[in-house]
């Protein structure tokens, strides 16, 4: 009786998740194949998993932009450095606010939460960054204003809450400093949390393009996403504007394949980051058994 119910429950789970995964991957594959379809055929026949004419014109158009290799470097640096710094800062504050350590913890919690809802707007942020912090045309402008994300912080605090204080109460009594506790006890037990929050921060930094738009004029410091975003934005314009110019009309003949380029950018965008999650999955294992430590 038990065995069969076990079996059917698993089957149900497999079915459900497999179906959902299929629903997720199918459009994705469609985007992929469409981006590799000849533009004219795409326009004529629409999207298909099995196009008649394959073409890498879209990818050529994107990757031939001279600024792309450099942008990859910019983005990789930003992502790695940013994620590291963010994780450190976030862990510190999340640990401090977890449990019932601090008398003023809820006041501090409120301070952070308030900033999630209330926002001074683009203008004041812009003035702050350009005039007072002088971060224009610096690669740090991708990182510094975004180091701490309150949502991530609350999430991490929530994970830390799950770790019973008794665990390190003893260490504290023996005189261990908070740093040691955080570093040697709490963090190793929180690998899933670190992996998750790390993933979220990494994605944020990887996708970052607004700082480039606002604060960077030096095209050697453009992020990957910004260049891609430019391509798409400018295609949109090119498609809509009647370029009523004698010169323009000749040049217009060589418009980049608009549709396929848009689709291809989705692929190029995702690129390496898609491998981050599978890589991090190994950390989604529970920490050491509580019982073992207690014993």
């Amino acid at each position: 009786m038990k065995l069969s119910s076990l079996w059917s429950l698993s089957t149900l789970f497999y079915l459900f998740t497999a179906l959902f995964s299929l629903a997720c991957v199918y459009p994705f594959v469609l985007v992929l194949t469409s981006s590799l379809t000849d533009e004219v055929e795409l326009i004529r026949n629409g999207y298909s998993l099995f196009p008649e004419t394959w073409s890498i014109a879209a990818y050529k158009a994107i990757l031939s932009t001279p600024t792309i290799p450099r942008a990859y470097l910019v983005t990789i640096f930003t992502t790695v450095a940013g994620t590291l710094i963010s994780l450190i800062v976030t862990s510190m504050i999340a640990y401090a606010l977890s449990g019932r350590k601090l008398y003023y913890r809820n006041h501090i919690n409120f301070i952070f939460y308030f900033t999630m809802l209330f926002n001074g707007g683009l203008v004041s942020f812009y003035i702050l960054v350009t005039r007072y912090l002088q971060l224009t045309d610096s690669i740090w402008v991708y990182i510094i204003p975004f180091v701490l994300n309150p949502w991530n912080m609350f999430l991490m605090r929530n994970f830390f809450n799950e770790i019973p204080e008794e665990l390190y109460e003893s260490s504290r009594l023996e005189g261990a400093g908070e740093w040691r506790i955080l570093w040697q006890i709490v963090l190793p037990l929180s690998l899933p949390a670190l992996a998750t929050i790390g993933l979220f921060y990494a994605l944020m930094y990887w996708n970052s393009w607004q700082p480039a738009l606002l604060f960077i004029n030096n095209d050697k410091l453009f992020s990957l996403q910004y260049i891609i975003m430019q391509i798409i934005r400018n295609i949109d314009i090119a498609q809509n504007i009647a370029v009523s110019s004698t010169a323009g009309s000749v040049i217009n003949t060589q418009r980049p394949p608009a549709f396929t380029v848009r689709l291809a950018t989705a692929m190029v965008t995702i690129g390496p980051i898609i491998f981050l999650y599978p890589f991090l999955q190994r950390y989604f294992v529970g920490g050491l058994k509580i019982g073992a430590i207690k014993g």
């Binding site: 900033t115 999630m116 809802l117 209330f118 926002n119 707007g121 683009l122 942020f125 975004f146 994300n149 949502w151 991530n152 979220f200 944020m204 607004q210």
Partner: peptide, 13 residues
């Protein structure tokens, strides 16, 4: 997730 800035940015942009 990143509500504050992103929201205003997207609105204003």
């Amino acid at each position: 997730m990143k509500k504050g800035l992103k929201k205003t940015l997207s609105l204003i942009f």
